[in-house]
């Protein structure tokens, strides 16, 4: 049983790593498709925790794979998911480093990148709306979303501060809800 889950983790996260064009956030829709929709390793709430944890720790968003792997199959799951999610990146960089002059000059390759990015934007927006529908219910949460968007776009506040800030707001709101 465990080895089947490990194989599924490896297969899923190799795909996540291979198709996540446009930076770490591009991997989030792919991770959701695999971990929540396809294999049901996590609930939507746990998935948002996985993404959030990827933000408060140092290192890239892709590290959320570790959380998902751990939830699916313990420590060995964490190791397999982590290795799988980073393998395509490293392989791609190796190949690009060797052949990039030929690849980069090709207008069709450029065009492919430009066609992928709008799709990534659409997918990220859809995941954000899905997470919001599931987990953003109170007024204070809507405010946190709005303030986060503004601070990230306008003031370039580091992601980790925004995530820590919203966590603290969540804890305060819960305590306040209990006592008043």
């Amino acid at each position: 049983m465990l080895s089947i889950t490990l194989a599924e983790l490896a297969w899923s996260f190799l795909r996540v790593g291979l198709f996540g064009f446009g930076g770490g956030f591009a991997m989030i829709p792919l991770m959701q498709a695999a971990a929540v929709n396809e294999y049901h390793w996590l609930t939507m709430k746990q998935f948002s925790a996985a993404i959030a944890v990827g933000q408060i720790t140092p290192g890239p968003v892709a590290i959320s794979a570790t959380f998902i792997g751990y939830q699916a199959a313990g420590i060995s799951g964490a190791v397999v998911a982590t290795l799988a999610v980073f393998t395509p990146s490293i392989l791609a960089m190796y190949l690009l480093a060797r052949f990039y002059l030929r690849v980069r000059a090709d207008p069709v390759v450029q065009g492919m990148m430009h066609g992928v990015l709008p799709v990534i934007v659409a997918l990220i927006v859809m995941v954000a709306l899905g997470l919001g529908q599931e987990g953003v219910a109170s007024l204070w949460q809507v405010l946190v979303v709005a303030v986060t968007v503004l601070l990230a776009i306008r003031a370039r506040v580091p992601y980790v501060l925004l995530i820590l800030g919203s966590t603290v707001v969540g804890m305060v709101a819960t305590l306040a809800g209990k006592h008043f």
Partner: peptide, 19 residues
Amino acid sequence: GALAGLTSGVVGLMLAVAW
């Protein structure tokens, strides 16, 4: 409560990254 806050922050961040 912390998770509810985290989720809101993540949703906001994702929208900002999409932007």
